[in-house]
Amino acid sequence: MTIKERPILEIKNLSVTFTAGRKPVRAVDGVDLSVARGEVVALLGESGSGKSVTLRTILRLHNERRTKMEGSLLVRGSDVLKMKTRELGDLRGRTVSMIFQEPMLAMDPVYSVGQQIIEVIRKHEPVSYEEARKRALHLFERVRIPSPERRLDAYPHEMSGGMRQRAMIALALACKPEILLADEPTTALDATVQVQILLLLRELQHELGLSVIFVTHDIGVAVEVADRIAVMYAGRIVEIGPVRSVIRTPRHPYTRGLLSTRGHGGRLSGKRLPAIPGSPPDLANLPPGCAFAPRCALADDRCRAQAPSPTTVDEGHVVRCLRTDATTQSLAAADVSA
């Protein structure tokens, strides 16, 4: 065993509160997450669970005047939340970069794709225009865009969706970042293109030794790309662990609900798709106990009274639930019936 390296990203007790509305909204509530060098972590959750907010906080993209960020967020040991504007400018795009959900909207329509990549390279590194262009061309080859020379001069609207996302990835990798943040990068794409992009991301991640945080609401995608899965609900990580462990033996009732709602190929048609009853809680108005308790079949009075603290159930597998005893039992039962 090698000596354990310090994680490249350490998030400790991070809370993000939006104060714009009448009532402050706590979108992220006490998130702890560390990502090792070369590791892929998937943040899984439905809309409004705080996964995208967590991701954006890593680059501090929120409006500073209307957002309160607490806790600490260390990238290579330095706290992003305490950085000055200049340090932040160096961090963004260079150490940490981001891929967006909709490449059509995330690219500037009035500049060619090549120009945008060159602009980013020259912002961070003192290289000539020709040198930057050469690198952009190389990046295009790397993300396997056909006839890269010509595509470099294309405008975003002249490319297909998959091609645009490839260009977006090239843009994100322009300055050789160490951490890549992916905000649902395949959601806006066709199913066939989705797979291609996922494979490409996985391959590039492997070759470049990138650490990736991958936000998605698609369990299938998460399983495909991630080493570890973190399930978020109402601004908290309710379950985190290695992919295998979380998928095979989910301990949190919410994760189990998510897994059962997945339309498997093997599921009999004509059968009703199981759903989690109720809807996600209002973040400005959270229940005092476990946020999932009102929708949970296993919840008891304890769950409604006190918020569960993290419990380690397996090697690296941590759950925030007071009824892990019940979920473990029913797991065993499910194994028998299967």
């Binding site: 680059l59 993209l61 504007t85 400018g89 160096d90 961090l91 963004r92 795009g93 260079r94 970069s97 981001m98 967006f100 909709e102 909207l105 995330a106 690219m107 500037d108 329509p109 500049y111 602009e119 980013v120 912002k123 961070h124 843009l171 994100a172 322009a174």
Partner: peptide, 19 residues
């Protein structure tokens, strides 16, 4: 979105206004 993307790639406020 592309303004946020520009910020995420490290562009300063002045660069964003200019470009």
């Amino acid at each position: 979105d592309f303004v946020e993307a520009a910020r995420a790639s490290g562009a300063s406020a002045l660069t964003i206004i200019r470009v």
